[in-house]
């Protein structure tokens, strides 16, 4: 029997799911709600985020927070479309979903390196 390469996609899916489950709500709070509710100084908030993104570990954290949920979401969409009997070539859907996630991950990494 030929070995499936699905474990690569499933590992990224699992990692993204774990990340979202554990720190997803915290991320939403810190990035979307707190700057509006608690921080009254937009300049200081901007500087704080800039400092996070300037540090290599900060870049890595943001990269993980973007890339893993991307793979998680597109993996789930890929299989859900199959479950919904979408009549599309398998290879094309793989290219769109996993290729899309890879491309967006690359763009994110490139953008983070530019900061």
């Amino acid at each position: 029997m030929r070995r499936s390469h699905e474990p690569i996609a499933w590992s990224l899916f699992g990692a993204g799911g774990m990340l979202l489950a554990f720190i997803g709500p915290g991320l939403v709070l810190a990035t979307a709600l707190l700057p509006w509710l608690a921080a009254h100084d937009p300049v200081a908030t901007h500087a704080a985020v800039g400092a996070l993104l300037a540090h290599p570990l900060g870049k890595l954290l943001v990269l993980a927070c973007v890339v893993l949920p991307l793979f998680h979401t597109l993996h789930r969409i890929y299989h859900s479309l199959h479950d919904l009997h979408l009549r599309a070539p398998r290879r094309l859907m793989q290219l769109l979903c996993y290729g899309g996630a890879t491309l967006l991950s690359g763009v994110t990494a490139w953008w983070l390196l530019l900061i």
């Binding site: 029997m1 030929r2 070995r3 499936s4 699905e6 474990p7 499933w10 299989h79 859900s80 199959h82 479950d83």
Partner: peptide, 16 residues
């Protein structure tokens, strides 16, 4: 594991 590892093994399941 040879059977489980295949596409027709565990990897065809989409956890419905």
């Amino acid at each position: 594991m040879n059977w489980l590892n295949a596409e027709a093994g565990v990897w065809s399941c989409t956890f419905v």
